[in-house]
Design a protein around this nucleic acid. Structure first.
Lengths: 192, 192, 192, 192
DNA sequence: GATGAATGAGCGTTCATTCAT
DNA sequence: CATGAATGAACGCTCATTCAT
């Protein structure tokens, strides 16, 4: 039922989508939706929350995958999982990253918090992967890097959706490389 | 009159904004707006078009600035102009980059085309700046790089808005560096 | 189960009350209510009918109380019973007298008929009490007097609810006196 | 336009009446109503307020009528005006006295206050008319008497509507007489 | 026989849009 | 030309009512 909502919300922004559409897509009626989700805002919030959880879970699982080859870069594995999610769940990503940018109102706070969760996850990933080599990294630098990584990944994802001949693997490789190169550049910038 | 519309559109998404608000901000009445701009979609399209023009114009002017120091990197100058625009015209950028994702309708096409104009401008900038050194660059790679550059710049712009203590100049330097480093990485990836 | 309905109906008018509330107060579920009472109108009608019966029964029992002192005015006893009922069953009276004014539908007829039953009871009481002394009373005058008595009693009841320091006994005394004085005035008006 | 609303509100209680009906009766459309009256509650409140004003105004004008015969009882004149209003503006009275009895919500407070205005007016009338003869009247007694007078008048009004052969003049005479007799009885009760 | 789950119908409210002035 | 006033259409939400269990 939330699946249907995600599908519909990915087709248009919050106000363009009507409860009737969501109910139709879910194969039920409006009152039923209200009984389960409470309100339109509630539905949207539930969508964003659920998709955030799914995305973070997918990335975590990949990073901590016990069956992964020994020497493999966990950051790369995480990025790959991210791309797999974005390309395999295009709708989710649209809802999460593109529709969630309402400035005012109570929804904005909530969705901003959730988007921050994704960034925080990436930041944590970066910190973990660089531990030992880049201990002197300013936490604020890490934050900024994480944001750039997510933005870059978003651009790659868009690209991927328009150029199906490119592989998520290659994209993941590129983002990882870029992020490492940012890291090196950043360290160079702060500690000569 | 379009100024007023941009101001108001930056406060909320397309549907949250009412014609009444726009007319009030413009200091006129609704029918007058209809006479000049035709419809709400027309107004929004006009806003996006105008702001796109302004942004591109600002970047071009900076790049071709005849008074610029001789050895300075034009890419860096362009990026700096971009940041100056984004921080100095926060409303415009919001309308341009964040609000433009509507339902399929005719508006989506239009705004997508305009966003592509910005990307194309950056792509042209990259091509121009790398001419001679990176002639073997695949145009598609250039496209991808341009997208990444704009996404990264957007992330920086957000960061800048939340951290006023950082300077646009430093941000512009970072994006430029990163883009160059991407270029090098890209070339390394395709031509050993 | 009807008790619950009366309680809830006394809290708000017909449309403000939801079947859900009634079912919750009754400790059962909506379909069960429909099985027993048929519809919302049915429930409301049942409430009014039942409370009408209770009120009339209470007044009758008091009037014909075999243990009452010999010389006591039966009209006064009836009025006292009325006040005891209204103050002791505030909810019932509210439903009965204040909520019963709905749109023309079938409900309006029904409830009007029931309110007329109360008035008729009072009219009968007046007739009985005045038998012998006021045989020449026009039945229409009796009707009018009964209506006034009920209206007056309603006003007293409201007053009582807002001024708990007054006793129902005193109120009953006043209404009785007033009714008698009306009777005398009325007779004076019609039979010189 | 409020006239239409009064007409429609007199046909059914607050929730039974729909904005569409009111708009239809007013010969306009729903949005127009909202532009002028703001909301359904606003419309209802405006109705009650307006009719209260009209009723009180009518009574006052009659009481202070400079062309009235010298020796006439002003209380009687006020009562007559009241009956003329109620029979000549049946809808107004219905809205005022019968529909206004919603218990909860913000409307209840407002309408209760307005009904109190009517009672207060009558109380003032009683005080003025008895000044000199009944100076020892407890204000609370006056309040109670005023309430009873209004209730009685309401009963008479109902009677009048069902028996068009009776004249408002006779009814007014009766209420006046009854009120005077209540006064005498009341004085007798408190000061032997 | 009792209920959780479902829904058709309808309401109050808003907004982009258009006449009549 | 500019505007005050008006509205058709649509939306979020609720509730009395009914099946399937």
């Amino acid at each position: 039922m939330i699946d249907a909502a995600v599908t519909v919300f990915s087709r248009g922004d919050y106000h363009t989508v009507s409860m009737e559409e969501i109910a139709a897509e879910a194969g039920t009626s409006k009152p039923t939706m209200y009984q389960y989700l409470g309100s339109k805002e509630g539905i949207f919030a539930a969508c964003v929350r659920r998709e955030t959880d799914r995305l973070i879970e997918a990335v975590r699982a990949a990073v901590h995958d016990p069956h992964a080859p020994a020497g493999e870069d966990p950051l790369r594995r995480g990025m790959h999982a991210f791309f797999a999610f974005v390309t395999g769940n295009r709708e989710s990503w649209t809802v999460l990253y593109r529709r969630a940018a309402l400035r005012g109102g109570p929804l904005a706070e909530e969705t901003a918090r959730l988007r921050d969760r994704v960034v925080a996850e990436v930041a944590g990933l970066i910190t973990a992967c660089t531990s030992g080599d880049y201990d002197d990294l300013d936490p604020r630098d890490t934050q900024l890097l994480a944001r750039i990584a997510v933005s870059t990944a978003d651009a790659f994802a868009d690209w991927l959706l328009e150029h199906p001949e490119e592989s998520p693997e290659a994209m993941a490789g590129h983002v990882t490389e870029l992020t490492w190169s940012h890291l090196r550049a950043r360290r160079g910038a702060t500690s000569p």
